Simulated assay, not measured.
Amino acid sequence: MPVSTWTPVGQWTGTVTHDGEVDEYTVTFVPDGSLSVTTKKSTGYGSWTVTGEDSLQFSLREDFNLDVTQISPNGHRAAYIQIDIDARHDDGALTGEGKAVVHGPDDVVIYATGAQTEARRVS
């Protein structure tokens, strides 16, 4: 089986679509398998793994900024989101889909939804 030489290492900008909304983000994939993400209303950290010649999985916890009151679609205050994505690299774009699980301030799961993402490398 051939070994992939592709890596997502670097900074990417993109969008994530969920529940009819589109949010912009910037993600940085670090060579050690860690990642960081920023949006207008949150920051997050996690990890990534190449899973094939042009595919990867990544997982992160995204905490809402303290100055943001984020209310879930079912009316509860959200504190953070756990996101798990399976993605593919094709023609310069990183596209994927997965699950976002929203947690309240007390760590209780308050909502889960599907998410689709597309990003392009910046550096």
Rank of each mutant, 00 (worst) to 15 (best):
T39P: 00
H103W: 03
T38A: 09
H76D: 08
P105G: 13
M1Q: 15
G98R: 02
V3G: 15
R121Y: 00
I110N: 02
L56V: 02
G92F: 07
D84H: 14
R88F: 12
P73K: 01
V108C: 03
T28K: 04
M1R: 12
Q57L: 15
T28I: 06
T17L: 06
I71R: 04
V30F: 10
T69M: 11
T39F: 03
A78T: 09
A78R: 00
D67M: 06
H76T: 11
Y25G: 01
T117G: 11
E97F: 10
T51E: 01
P31Q: 06
T113E: 08
V16C: 07
T26W: 01
D107H: 12
S59I: 11
D90S: 08
P8H: 02
R61T: 13
L35V: 00
T39H: 08
V102T: 15
H18N: 12
Q57C: 11
Q82F: 13
T5L: 10
G96T: 03
A87I: 03
S55W: 01
F64M: 09
D86K: 13
G46H: 05
E53V: 11
S72D: 08
V68H: 06
S36D: 11
E97G: 08
D91T: 11
D106L: 03
V3R: 09
V108W: 04
D91V: 07
G33H: 01
H76L: 14
L60D: 10
G104D: 08
S36T: 11
T43W: 15
S72K: 02
D90H: 15
T28V: 12
Q116R: 11
T113G: 06
I81Q: 06
A100L: 04
V68L: 06
A87Y: 00
D23N: 15
T7W: 01
Q82P: 07
A100D: 02
A100V: 00
T51Q: 03
T39R: 08
Q82T: 11
E24Y: 07
D67L: 07
T28H: 04
V68N: 07
T26P: 00
